[in-house]
Write a protein that binds this DNA or RNA. Structure first.
Lengths: 207, 207
DNA sequence: CGGAAGATTGAGGTCGATCAAGCTACGTGG
DNA sequence: CCACGTAGCTTGATCGACCTCAATCTTCCG
């Protein structure tokens, strides 16, 4: 990250336990975060408990950036997670004078926006099978190592990300497995092998 | 591009006929637009024709801003629409050196992002009645004059914005009217009076 | 080994989608 | 001014994808 090399920006690190909250919606935004290890979920709640996860953040991702100083999501550690912290005020201090830094804030915001735009299409118009296929492709791109996709999040988290129920997520995965498009690794339902990326991509009619 | 060949471009203004395309997805982004009069819809399509409208732009709104020089949506005039044009390259030229300008790009992008974030919650987790209620509240805020909400867009457009069908939009509106929460003005189904904003807000369980 | 959390699978219900018919508004031309 | 055509809206009937409820199974830990 650009900001990391700037001496006026203070850096520190913190580790959150699986399930613990990093910050809450509407809290003042003191820090910007970068995931060092682990996974973070970012979500909004309705008053009756319905939850929409808007993003998962994996190592390398930056999150918690907000214009206006107040967080618009709650974030929690999906697994034990270590993050780097950057004081927000130290960014503000230099933002006005340093065009390069403001530009990188713009880049980060644009990246978030592009993801949100794609996700709106998924949530508004795709079928459950298409959503799950799109999810697998996204996660495969972002966190596959050694040919195995190790999902850090539960079926419920996936469901709340894709705007469906955990049962339908499970059924969709079973269906894709039955079709020979993916396989589960022995004894862990979160370890997935994508056997046919071609066909999987076909299920996600992007564009 | 249509606008490029038109003489009114030199005046930095252009008028689009109802239904005509302003720019297409994946086209290079030459201009940024501001709505002077009329309404614009911005959308993505799936290969089989399913459409997700991500935003309606009304007078005063800026749209067409994209980092990377390529449009991520198709935009069309919902009604006859006049826009002001700003050459994109003229922004790029000063963006690096002028922190203030880059900051305003950041503000616009942040505004878009916030809207997209709220819309993800709507698309992923709200019921059809909640969606329509939220839509009416949003449009009431953005374009009501003289106590009457004059919707420029069709039921189909509304449906594609809210991730549902035009029939369900129509039924939801009829339902709200039956409850005495809104009324239609004589002889035009797109002129709506909000009789009970309090109760309408109750249907949209925001947060 | 025992309990809890998470995943799968089944059965049945429901909300919204689809298919279809009619209605209303509105523009066009006689 | 009216007949007519068309586009858009409403309403009804039926269908189906997804949700809900529930039972069972697996994994993971203490």
């Amino acid at each position: 990250m650009t900001a990391a090399s700037n001496p006026t920006v203070s850096l520190s690190e913190f580790t959150y336990r699986r399930g613990s909250e990093i910050y809450g919606e509407k809290e003042p935004a003191e820090y910007i975060y970068q995931v060092k290890s682990g996974t973070v979920r970012s979500y909004k709640l309705l008053s009756d408990g319905r939850r929409q996860i808007n993003a998962f953040h994996v190592p390398g991702d930056t999150f918690g950036l907000t214009n206006g100083g107040v967080h618009r999501f709650t974030t929690e550690a999906v697994t034990d997670t270590t993050v780097r912290l950057i004081r927000r005020e130290s960014l503000d201090a230099v933002a006005g004078s340093d065009g390069t830094l403001t530009g990188s804030l713009l880049d980060m915001t644009t990246t978030n926006l592009r993801h949100a735009e794609d996700h709106m299409l998924l949530l508004g118009r795709k079928t459950s099978l298409e959503r799950v296929a799109a999810f697998l492709i996204e996660m495969d791109r972002r966190l596959t190592a050694a040919g195995v996709l190790a999902l850090p999040m539960s079926r419920r988290d996936i469901a709340d990300y894709l705007g469906m129920t955990l049962e339908i997520v499970s059924r969709s995965l079973s269906h894709l497995r039955a079709l020979g498009i993916l396989g589960f690794i022995d004894n862990n339902q979160r370890h997935i092998v994508l056997l046919d990326r071609q066909q999987l991509t076909g299920f996600d009619r992007r564009n």
